[in-house]
Design a protein around this nucleic acid. Structure first.
Lengths: 154, 154
DNA sequence: AGAGGTGGTCTCAAAAAGAGACCAGCACTA
DNA sequence: TAGTGCTGGTCTCTTTTTGAGACCACCTCT
């Protein structure tokens, strides 16, 4: 099987000549992931620490929702029907702990709770959004790859 | 508590005026996550489907490693000491299935297996890398947020 | 009085991840 | 020739994470 023609689309259609931007090539990507100064042990790496907080099943979805507008607890639950109340509580708690989400209780009766992105959260979503955008543009390529792989492997 | 001054740094130091780039505001971010045309059910959303494959504990780390250069199985195991052989096999398998990673067996004795990024994988890493870069630049802000949260909540 | 909406917590089952033994095949060494 | 080690895995068992759903106090409206 020869090298397939690249049919996927890049996120930055213009002005981004290729995958590797200038800063990417400044030093080894793995070095960046190790984030230097970790004493040679890749296990406790700050970047891993931060990324870990985002790769939960619901984190990126809730970030995308809150990037749109602030939402109340129940609104988020209705917006994402297949999340359990337990995981919604927990994921929002974790996002708040990492400083991405602000939780505000309003003294209504019964009290309502509003979740919104902090400045840090908006900043982080700017980067996360690149990935979401890529996924939207290339989901059919990924789906094709999966289908091809499954067909080949049985 | 007033609105804190934003002390975190943006990834694109110049030319990116704020979090929201032009394309971000074209339509609702949540709409993008739903990726339209999903019949109103956010549960089976192509973007979620793609993102899901990347938020495993080891996926982004292995992508970063392979973005640096191709590696053999044992090399990856030594590079990431705290991954179990089982999860390394499985994660590489999943990344291969999604079309990000190419697996090639060389007929040496004993046979060796080399893993490398495909074009699709390199393209995806271009987006993922934004997030990694953000994490590197802002991990202290996240760490501070965590410390503050833990101190407040006990 | 009863139903419904608020934002949760608690318990228990299912799924995923981690630890480590085991495997075939070959090369090198003793 | 028997041991040792390296290759890339799989298999089983235990621990952690997630999911499903009951339960809760409080208030409002009917």
């Amino acid at each position: 099987m020869a090298v397939k023609k690249a049919v996927f689309r890049e996120v930055g259609t213009a002005r981004e000549p290729a995958v590797d931007s200038t800063i990417v090539n400044l030093r080894s990507k793995l070095e960046i992931y190790k984030s230097l100064s970790d004493g040679g042990n890749i296990a406790d790496c700050p970047v891993r620490d931060v990324i870990q907080g985002l790769n939960g099943k619901w984190s990126s979805l809730l970030m995308a929702a809150l990037a749109e507008q602030p939402y109340r607890f129940g609104e988020l639950r209705r917006l994402v029907p297949d999340i359990s109340q337990r995981m919604l509580t927990q994921t929002l708690h974790d996002l708040q702990r990492d400083g991405y989400v602000h939780r505000e209780v309003f003294p209504t009766k019964p009290p309502s709770v509003e979740y919104s992105l902090t400045d840090l959260g908006r900043s982080m979503f700017g980067a996360l959004h690149q990935l979401i955008l890529w996924a939207e543009l290339n989901h059919d390529a990924v789906r094709d790859a999966r289908a091809g792989f499954d067909a080949a492997q049985g």
